[in-house]
């Protein structure tokens, strides 16, 4: 059996929240270890230009910004590990965290696992994900030069994806289940006025067509008003229907709200378990910004430091 590795603080997640927590915890001599998960750097690593992060008046790319965060955390001794936490046990202290077969324990845990793009939940979507279906236009838009793509969704991120895809695709069709977008006015207008983009209102995807061999070839769309279905051919589909928090390993372990976000005490990063703190998008469905995530990561490290002093 493997030996348990004891740490003062364990940080799960490596976006702006996790790495800011790591900077503060490391400077507080808490010798933190950061489990970076599948996507070191978090959601910003699949964006292009970040124009609203303070301190970068000329903008910076998401991956570059996150490299700087990591470098800063490492400078003060934070250990960052490109591994996934697979299981936790918070039933008694010290709390346990497993990374595959490796077992770690700590009295203080900071959860900053963030959120992932939500998917429609169709079998055919799962089958064809990566074979024509994507949740990241900046990653995969390149493969649709002069092709036809669908974008599913009606919020700001759907508008961004649709506009970005016009750089490559010959036709972009936005499929939206309502008769108006909830996106901000500026984004809405850019989409509605774009010559390459058309919108299918009151429409949902019933099924995706194609196979791994052929790739995605089309979708069955349903008009929600009339109930009629039709086939629409396309080479790619980008899903942008919001996010879902990465909390599956914490279910029935810490308190989550109805949408599976971690519940924290108002004005604090404290969860329902003493010594377990949550920061960033995993507990914030309202602001979801890099700078707010970084802010709450700082709070989590300070809360953890204070908590450890009381033990």
């Amino acid at each position: 059996m493997n030996e348990t590795m004891k740490r003062k603080v364990i940080i799960i997640g490596s976006g702006p929240a996790g790495l800011t927590a790591a900077i503060y915890a490391a400077r507080g001599n808490l010798n933190p270890i950061v489990f970076e998960g599948n996507q070191p750097g978090g959601q910003l690593t699949i964006t292009t230009e970040v124009e609203n992060y303070p301190g970068f008046p000329k903008g910076i790319t998401g991956p570059e910004l996150m490299d700087l965060f990591r470098e800063q955390a490492q400078r003060f001794g934070a250990e960052t590990v490109f591994k996934n936490v697979t299981k936790v046990d918070f039933s008694k202290r010290p709390y346990k965290v497993w990374v595959g077969d490796e077992e770690y324990s700590s009295d203080a845990i900071i959860i900053a696992t963030g959120a992932t793009a939500r998917l429609l939940g169709l079998e055919s979507e799962k089958e064809l994900f990566g074979y024509g279906i994507s949740a990241c236009a900046t990653c995969d838009g390149f493969f649709y030069k002069d092709k036809k793509v669908l974008v599913v969704g009606g919020g700001d991120s759907a508008m961004e994806e649709a506009l970005f895809l016009t750089k490559f695709a010959s036709e972009v069709r936005v499929v939206h289940r309502r008769d108006e977008f909830r996106a901000s006015q500026i984004m809405r207008e850019r989409v509605l006025n774009h010559p390459k983009i058309k919108v299918h209102w009151n429409t949902v995807v019933e099924e995706f067509l194609g196979s791994k061999e052929s790739g995605l070839t089309g979708a069955i769309l349903k008009d929600t008003k009339t109930g009629t279905t039709r086939e629409e051919s396309c080479d790619g589909t980008f899903i942008a229907i919001g996010h879902t928090p990465n909390t599956s390993i914490f279910e029935d372990i810490i308190e989550l709200d109805d949408n599976k976000y971690i519940v924290t005490n108002p004005g604090s990063t404290q969860t329902n378990l003493p010594g377990v703190f949550a920061s960033g998008d995993v507990q914030d469905h309202k602001y979801r910004q890099a700078v707010t995530a970084a802010g709450s990561g700082c709070s989590a490290a300070l809360d953890a430091e204070h908590y450890l002093e009381t033990l």
Partner: peptide
């Protein structure tokens, strides 16, 4: 991979 792909940079050292 490609130069503009963030996740590609993550996998490169691995």
């Amino acid at each position: 991979w490609a130069e503009w792909c963030g996740p590609c940079k993550v996998i490169a050292p691995v």
